[in-house]
Design a protein around this nucleic acid. Structure first.
Lengths: 193, 193
DNA sequence: GAAATTGTTGAACGATTGATCAACAATGGT
DNA sequence: ACCATTGTTGATCAATCGTTCAACAATTTC
């Protein structure tokens, strides 16, 4: 062995994530990252290879956090359908809250980088797929429990819900009135009935 | 009078638009813009003040194009509701086509810049509002003609459709299978029934 | 406690960024 | 024909970008 690493990896990832989330990949400079993480360039490069490497690690960190949050929202109630409604109501409140306007790091990245960076695109699709699977599972178990009509297609609905989340994230970027966000959510939730 | 301007403003805007659309605001450099427009920096700054000024002019140009396209799609048929379905089917085909993956300049910009640049945010909201008004008008006239149930709320539906467009644009960024896009569109269109 | 190994530091690298400007070109007015 | 005015050009600006690296620090092994 030799000199041990001095920083907490998760701590650094959390701080870098906030920076990327705030400003996007391109606008966040290494000097920004040095400031927020309190690491020197050399340490960052030793640990993450490059700015892109740090960003990919950050994406993973964000996805982990998100999956946990969504899983919790979906299983807070006994009813899977109510869980989904729960999730969207929370999302609506976030969109209107003080930290509004931040959209979602994954969605931001789809539009900012995915087209130009295959590595990022693949990583994103993996994470988004994981999240979609959570909704699919909830929809299927809703159907099993008889909450969701048997003639509905859970896969199609899961894809639709994902698209709706993305749309709501963009909506958040337009600084909408809370009532507007609620209205949109009410509309899309009627598809589950 | 003095020396006349040598370039076609619309031609320059179209070329700059393609550049910004391809790569986003931040990644598109002045040197990129000099290359695609075939103007020298001085001419660009004389005509548009700054990179941001050129971008704002580009947004206006894009919005103009979009409004025309959407207006045409919505009025291609006698039935306003069929016009809306028309629009979404076209959007679905674009998402899968060769120029797919480009999303929409306005949507890209919402997530890339709006939060950090109030001027851009306001301009965007104006353009998006114009587009939403087109859908609202189509929905209202559908209701007048009896195509849309009187107990539906055109304003709520218009907001929902806008959010759906945005979601579909993000979906496009994930390089989806055409069937997936079609499925999502079918789902969201059922809200008009 | 010396050697080997790995982490940390901060200055520095060349490249590129958005923007400026003096010199020059082209027009209309007189 | 000359002047006033405005457009164009291309070199150039300081600032910042992502990245590297030699010097130094901290740890384990023997």
């Amino acid at each position: 062995m030799a000199r041990p690493i001095q920083f907490e990896r998760d701590d650094v990832l959390e701080k870098a994530m906030q920076a990327f989330w705030d400003k996007g990949y391109n606008v966040t400079s290494m000097s920004d990252l040095v400031n927020v993480t309190d690491l020197r360039p050399g340490s960052i490069y030793a640990a993450f290879d490059s700015k892109e490497g740090l960003f990919l690690a950050t994406l993973d960190h964000y996805a982990e956090r998100s999956v946990t949050k969504i899983e919790r929202a979906l299983t807070e109630t006994v009813s899977p359908l109510e869980g989904i409604r729960n999730f969207f109501r929370k999302l609506g409140r976030e969109t209107a809250g003080q930290h509004a306007n931040r959209s979602c790091l994954l969605v931001n990245t789809v539009l900012e980088m995915a087209r130009q960076n295959e590595t990022v695109q693949k990583r994103l699709n993996r994470h988004l797929g994981t999240i979609e699977a959570l909704f699919l599972h909830a929809l299927e178990s809703a159907q099993t429990k008889g909450e969701l009509s048997p003639n509905k297609d859970p896969k199609a609905l899961a894809a639709f819900l994902m698209t709706s989340i993305w749309g709501l994230r963009v909506l958040g970027g337009t600084n909408p009135a809370p009532a507007r966000t609620r209205s949109v959510i009410n509309q899309l939730l009627t598809l589950l009935e």
